[in-house]
Computed example of a mutant assay.
Amino acid sequence: MSERRSPRSRDAYAEFQTLQTRWNDNDQFGHLYNVTYHELFDEAMNRSLGARGMLNHRSGAPIQVVVENGCTYFSEVSYPDLLQVGLRVAAMGNSSIRLEMGLFREGEDRESAQAHFVLVTVDSRTHRPTPTPADQRKALEQLTL
């Protein structure tokens, strides 16, 4: 088994997306369902990529698809918490991108959960891997520290 990750602080991330928890996100124990964490991370990632023009599959430009993800939990969050998800690009290859994210309660400096998503750039029509275009690489560089 690998060594457990430690929580990061806000300064480990380049950008933040604010998300509101919902009543139906809570399980019978009063904290968020595990799948909800993944949904929140996915929403923050898609907002960030969408703002950079990288999710328009109808444009003909290459798009990114998730090929791997994972989450480590540090402390509970629940409704009605207002959350900020920090994002950063940890690594960029020829056609792959590793995004790392941290989920923070409003006003807290230590993340409650940490996630990673590995994306592969694919042709929007064939869905075959292709090099990440220069304009998309430049847009993603805004998320590097």
Rank of each mutant, 00 (worst) to 15 (best):
L140I: 00
R88S: 13
S6W: 01
A61G: 02
V66H: 06
R22S: 10
D123Y: 09
D11S: 14
Q20I: 06
N26S: 12
V120E: 04
R47L: 12
Q64N: 09
E39P: 00
E68S: 11
E76P: 08
S78T: 06
Y79D: 02
S2T: 14
Q84A: 15
D81W: 07
T132C: 05
E76A: 10
L55M: 15
S124E: 09
E106N: 08
S124L: 08
R88D: 07
R137P: 03
G70I: 12
G50P: 01
E3Q: 12
S95D: 08
G50Q: 09
R125E: 13
E39Y: 08
R5M: 08
G107S: 11
E3P: 04
A51K: 13
M101E: 03
R5T: 11
D135E: 14
E3R: 11
A134P: 03
P129W: 00
T144H: 08
R98S: 07
A115D: 01
F16T: 05
R128C: 11
M1R: 09
N24F: 12
R98P: 03
N26H: 09
D27I: 02
M54P: 03
Q136P: 03
S59F: 09
V67I: 15
A91C: 02
P80A: 04
Y79T: 05
S96L: 02
E39C: 11
R98N: 07
R128F: 01
R110V: 13
S96V: 02
R5K: 14
V118I: 14
A90K: 13
D11Q: 12
S59V: 08
E43G: 00
V66R: 07
F117L: 05
F74T: 05
S48I: 06
H38V: 15
H116G: 02
M92K: 03
T126F: 04
T121S: 15
T121K: 03
N69H: 13
R4N: 12
A113Y: 02
A61L: 07
Y79I: 05
V77I: 15
R125L: 12
H57E: 13
N24T: 11
A134E: 14
L140Y: 00
L55R: 06
T72D: 14
S59Y: 10
Y73W: 10
P7S: 08
P80N: 05
T130C: 15
P133N: 06
Q136D: 12
G102L: 01
T36Q: 12
F117K: 02
